[in-house]
Amino acid sequence: MSDHHKFGTHLPRSAGESLLFVLVISLISVNIIPVIISGLSIGFTLDMWLGVLRVLPLLWVVVVAVVLLTRKPAMWLTGLVVRKGDSFRAHIFADTLCSVLLISVILTVVGTWIGTWSLTSGPLVHFFESWPRNFMIAFVVEALLAQPLARLAMRGYHRRVDRRSDATAQTA
């Protein structure tokens, strides 16, 4: 499959599809990343996991908002790294890297506030200790799990839509 074809089948084609894409990625990410980060910070216990589950709905809404807020800056950064003729993989890697970079900066602070239900200076004071680990965890989950699964879902969705469209065109 050509790189040009992958841009049209593996990625959203409309605003509605983009929202669905973000929702799939964020649902996967928000169920894995905070659990790993919290577990590494305070230990992997049932209490830790239940604590993450309690804040998950709010955290998910905040994650989606941060993704939408950082989308244009991430695209601008990605444009500094890749060019139009670069491969699909190069574009996806750079976009994932730039997106996770920006999102992780914000969520290292805001996510801690949500997770602890406390607006303290702690996440700011310890930012440079916490952020590199948080970034790497988020990048690995995004690059190896969340985004590939979302692209796979998008590809399956586009196959069904395109088949339906082709069948409609043939009967017309």
Rank of each mutant, 00 (worst) to 15 (best):
L50R: 13
S104H: 04
V61W: 05
A138Y: 00
V141F: 01
L50F: 09
R71G: 09
V62Q: 04
V161I: 12
I28R: 05
V109N: 11
H158Y: 09
V55Q: 11
R160V: 14
A167F: 04
R89V: 13
S121V: 12
E129P: 01
L11A: 10
V62H: 02
L40A: 06
V100I: 15
V140K: 12
I36N: 03
W113R: 09
F88H: 13
A143C: 11
R159D: 07
L20Y: 11
S41L: 00
L50A: 13
G111L: 00
L80Q: 10
A74S: 15
W60G: 05
R54V: 08
I32K: 04
V125K: 15
S26K: 06
A153P: 03
D3W: 00
W49C: 08
L58V: 15
G122W: 01
T120E: 07
W49A: 14
D3H: 02
L27M: 15
D162A: 08
H10W: 15
L145Y: 03
A167G: 09
T120I: 05
R159Y: 05
V22A: 12
L144R: 03
A167I: 02
W60N: 10
L107I: 08
F21E: 06
L102S: 11
R151Y: 01
S104M: 02
S14F: 04
V22P: 00
L119T: 04
S29V: 13
S18H: 08
V64D: 02
D86T: 00
I25Q: 10
P123A: 09
A169Q: 11
F139E: 09
F139I: 10
K6T: 01
T120Q: 05
P132R: 12
T78G: 00
F44I: 09
S2E: 09
F128S: 13
R159K: 12
L101C: 12
I103H: 02
M1A: 14
R54Y: 05
L107R: 02
D47N: 10
H126S: 07
S18N: 13
I37H: 01
G16F: 07
L149D: 11
G85E: 14
R163A: 15
L124A: 11
G8R: 15
A15Y: 03
V100G: 03
F21M: 03
R133V: 13
I28T: 06
L152G: 05
F44Y: 14
F139P: 07
P132I: 12
K6M: 08
T45N: 06
M136D: 03
S165I: 10
M154K: 06
P57Y: 03
I106V: 15
F44D: 08
A138N: 12
V30D: 14
V52D: 00
V105Q: 04
S2I: 04
P148H: 03
A138I: 00
S18L: 10
H126W: 01
L145H: 06
L27F: 15
F127C: 03
T9S: 13
L152E: 04
W49N: 12
T120P: 07
P73A: 04
T171I: 15
A169C: 02
A143I: 10
G111F: 01
I32A: 04
